[in-house]
Every structure is written in C-alpha cells, then in structure tokens.
Write a protein that binds this DNA or RNA. Structure first.
Lengths: 172, 172
DNA sequence: ACAGCCATGTAACTTGTTACATGATTTT
DNA sequence: AAAATCATGTAACAAGTTACATGGCTGT
C-alpha cells in the first residue's frame, strides 16, 4: 500500500497531475525507487474509485489536476500518524530461503550462507563508495537513503554470521 | 515470489498434498508467517499452469499428491543458488514515509521519528523477552528468526537515531 | 452426537506492474 | 526537421489474499 499512500502524500503538497506525481515521488526518494508512469495513472484511478481523491474541476486535457477529498486527507493523516505495522512481520525472502533449506537439507545451509555473504559484502562496498561521494548538506534525502541501506546491509551480514555461529555450535 | 518458491522447496522434500504443505511451511518458519490454506491451493494451481509441478498419477480425492517437474526442479535450484536480488532494492515503507514527510513538511519529521522509535523500541523489548525464553538447541529455526527480527529492529533504531542526528546538524 | 481438526477447492478481489498507443511541447 | 521529454491513458496480467462452500476423519 506504499504507493497509494505516497500519491496521497504528494497530492497533499498541492494539486498536481499524473506525470508531475511521478517526478515528485522520484525526486523525494532520490531516484532510488523508479516509478513507472503508467502505475501512477492506474493508482490515481483506483484512488478516485475509492473516493480519496477527485479531479480539479474544469481541467480536462493534458495536465489535469487531482486533489485530496476529505476522506483522502483523513487516510493520509492516519497513515502518517501510525508507525509502520509489524504485527505479522513482512515475509523476508532471505530468511524464508534459509529456513526452508535448513528444513530440506541442512547440509546445504553453509554454502547458501557463503554465497549470500559474498553478494551482501559486495553491496556493502558499493554503498560505501556511494556514501563517500554524497554530500549530507545538499542531498539529505539521498544520504538518509544510503544510511538506511547501509544499516540494513550490515544487519544482514551480522545475521549471516550469527547463523553460521549457531549452526557451528550444534555439531560438536 | 517467495510463496511460489517456498512451495517448490517443500515439494522437493517429497511429494505432499496441499494441507501438508501449509503445515510444512509454518513449521519450517516456526509459525512466524501464517499461511492461509486457500493460498496454497491457488498457488499450486498456478504452478501447475506454469508446468513447474504435476499431480501424482492415480491420486485424485483428498490428499492428492504433487511433485516437481524437471522445469520445477530447475526453477528451485536457480532460486536457491542465487542470492536474494537487491538491484532495485525493495521499497521500504518507513523510508518512504519519512522521505515524503521530509519533502512535504520538514517540521513534522521529528514527531514521526519519535512515534516510530517508541513503537520500534517496544518491539525490541518484546523480541528480547521471546529470545530469553527460546532454546537454541531445540528450536533452531525459531531462534534464527528471532535473531533476524532483533537485528533488523536494532538497525531500524540506529537509522532513526541517525536521521535525527543528520537533521539536527542542519539547523544551526 | 458433536466438536474440532484435516482436507480441497473456487470466486472475487487488491495492489503492483508493464507494454503499448497516442499525442503535445521543448530542445537541438 | 528530428529527437527528447512531457503527458495521458488502457489492456492485460502476476502474485498475494481472503471468504466461503464442502466434506471426511478423529477423539470425547
């Protein structure tokens, strides 16, 4: 539901048209998550269907504007006010892969861990390079994004190490 | 695509029927991600449509078995062998929320950070409690899952702190 | 007999996603 | 005049998800 809410948030900054929304989203997220324009239009149609937005009266051709309705405002406020939900924690592909391998053929787990660590390490280095080039005073959003990716990547490496350790402690 | 591949992995452990797959999945992932049975059947139908699995010959009523086809075996091996992809990193709801708030109304960012930190901290404590009760020698999968959630949660807290710090460094 | 679990399946729906068709405006 | 970018939209589909209908088996 991130995209739906993102569009609401962008429209809260003043009425805009479809293409402008795409640009706003990508610039707000520093280009980290490209957004297919087509999806903006499908999502706008669904938001209108659900009564969360309405077209600006009078405009019709290119650059037709959209604005939030009252329910739309309310939905946005609710989304912003509530912390991101964790009650069924989102499924994590790496964890699923590892746990299923563990259940299926425990012997293949070490190889899986090794492969993943190597890929994750490479990503860490790439992120470090990007961070060195970034300027916290100019591209704040970009820097915060890099921080996020870096911390997440490091946590993944830590987890891989812990998995190895816990598995090792089982053998003897 | 995690669910599709999960079913392939479970079928690789020997032919099973729908309900058994649900149980296998939930026990392999220590109950952290409940799986609606209905979804198993819809997913099985789609996997058959795509030629990745086939029904065991002869069985038809309840407990009809399914097995991997050759393409199914190949798809599973490919999934297990490749590290989880990061090239367009998956969209992260918290990050999106924060960056859009930053773009929309920078003044509301501190409140958002505070709310989120409080929720995340609570989750951390809950996870710590669970970890204290878990036995690494008996419930390995459960312990690894908790490790994962804990490290992820701590990383999130670190990120929230970093965000505050970077924002603070902007004002003066 | 009845409660509860085992078991299968389908219809309907949601969000996300892309490929394509179409044209206006701007830049080179 | 051509190329690039801005701009709108639709058709089609994938994957996930749930609510519901249906019935068999098991233990009390």
């Amino acid at each position: 539901m991130s995209i739906r809410h993102s569009l609401l948030a962008i429209l809260a900054g003043g009425p805009t048209h479809g293409y402008g929304i795409k640009s706003s989203f990508e610039s707000a997220t520093a280009g980290a998550w490209p957004l297919n324009v087509g999806q903006v239009y499908t999502t706008l149609a669904r938001l209108e269907r659900d009564g969360l937005i309405e077209p600006e009266p009078g405009e019709d051709g290119p650059r037709r504007g959209w604005r939030l309705t009252n329910p739309g405002q309310a939905a946005l406020q609710a989304w912003l006010a509530e912390p991101v939900p964790t009650d069924p924690p989102p499924r994590d592909e790496l964890t699923i892969k590892l746990l299923l391998t563990l259940a299926l053929d425990q012997g293949q787990v070490p190889a899986l861990l090794a492969r993943q660590r190597s890929a994750t390490l490479e990503r860490l280095q790439q992120l470090n390079r990007l961070q060195r080039q970034a300027d916290p005073h100019k591209d704040l959003a970009w820097v915060l994004l890099l921080d996020h990716f870096l911390l997440k990547t490091k946590a993944e490496l830590d987890w891989l190490a812990l998995c190895e350790q816990r598995l090792g402690a089982r053998r003897p």
